[in-house]
């Protein structure tokens, strides 16, 4: 096990850990990630069929529907949300879903923005620990 430390910007601050679910493609949470099961249901998405629940979901950014904030908040409430989200670019709509959930239920999904080099250094199934200050600890097996 080797541990690397990446320093990102905490868009929604919080602590979380989980294994990385990595994609190179943007995703609309509404129409793209089921708020009852956590499955990626955008059938055109490269990770269609994968499940985000409890994972640290690493993808470039949100896109598409403005209902994605509602979908993320509902996913947090139903317990199927990702443990944390790591993006390349801030998507205000995803941040909003997490922030409104924090205001209403005191439960948020941490969202961290990483620089390109760091973002692409994360591999599928790496064990990630996200800290409130935006630090991401990466443990790669073997």
């Amino acid at each position: 096990m080797t541990e690397r430390i990446l320093v990102g910007r905490p868009v929604v601050a919080g602590s979380a850990e989980g294994t990385a679910l990595v994609s190179k493609e943007p995703l609309s949470f509404w129409g793209g990630c089921c708020p009852r099961t956590g499955e990626i249901i955008d059938r055109r998405h490269e990770r269609s069929g994968a499940n985000v629940t409890g994972r640290v979901f690493v993808f470039p950014q949100g896109k598409g529907s403005s209902t994605s904030s509602a979908t993320l908040m509902e996913s947090i409430k139903t317990g199927v949300a990702p443990a944390a989200i790591i993006n390349l670019k801030v998507d205000p709509i995803l941040a909003l879903g997490s922030i409104v959930s924090d205001e209403l239920y005191h439960k948020a999904v941490p969202i961290v923005i990483l620089a390109e080099k760091d973002f692409y250094s994360i591999k599928e199934d790496d064990h990630l620990t996200v800290e409130p200050d935006g630090t991401v600890k990466v443990n790669t097996k073997s």
Binding site: W30, P35, T71, E74, S101
Partner: peptide, 17 residues
């Protein structure tokens, strides 16, 4: 307002709150 579109437990609670 777009938030009136999807019916979810959380969205309903937010609006009613």
């Amino acid at each position: 307002i777009d938030g009136c579109g999807l019916l979810s437990e959380t969205g309903l609670e937010f609006a009613e709150t």
